[in-house]
Amino acid sequence: MNAPEATGRFEADEVDAWFGTKQVLRKVNLLIPERRITAVIGPSGCGKSTFIRCLNRMHELVPGARITGRIRLDGENIYAPEVDPVLLRRRVGMVFQKPNPFPTMSIRDNVLSGLRLTGALDRSRAEAIAEQALRGAALWDEVKDRLGEPGIGLSGGQQQRLCIARTLAVSPEVVLMDEPCSALDPIATARIEDLLSELKARYTIVIVTHNMQQAARVSDRTAFFLTGELIEVAETDTLFTSPTDRRTEDYITGKFG
């Protein structure tokens, strides 16, 4: 399905988004380079989660929500009428704030769920795919002897890595992460952060985070949002050491937020 040049490069162009009559994104223009980690930071309610939910067309699933503007993935407008959002989401995976493994499924079935739900599972390769995805999410060694046990029996951090494995099993180009560590303890958070730097060799990663230290630790580029606007985007080192906008500086030095 993916063309050879399909690498997961996003370009957002004049993106506006609303919940009902409330505008939550204003004229956002942002380039997300392929195979790097882009962090999206900003105070609560700044539109950062909404923005990444526009990237896999999840925003429009909320009743009353809409979006205008263009978002191109590898040069192709994902809001063009001929684009099927269901197929798009197989290329742009998502990991959520709270670990949400499927409660009725075993660890193995959770990993394979994406392929099963889309009817794309090659049974003869199921075990290999599950192992590969679990290794990719740095969970294999912890669960290899109990793949048949329920996914919700794992710890919070393991559940979140299971959700990452589930996302990787569909072989997306992009992985969106909406505050993936906010429900986890520091050790589990550190494991996921380590994992991110491994994943960027193969995936474009966009991570929303409340935690500026986390953005500084894991990301290559950082975008700062405030009240629905993109204030500043730069290489992470640059943004945290010499921000050009006064509001960015105030936020990263803790004057508000």
Binding site: R90, F96, N100, P101, L117
Partner: peptide, 14 residues
């Protein structure tokens, strides 16, 4: 929970 539906949609399930 809506989170489970979103998880499935996010995987590209119809």
């Amino acid at each position: 929970p809506r989170a489970l539906r979103e998880a499935a949609w996010g995987l590209g399930a119809s």
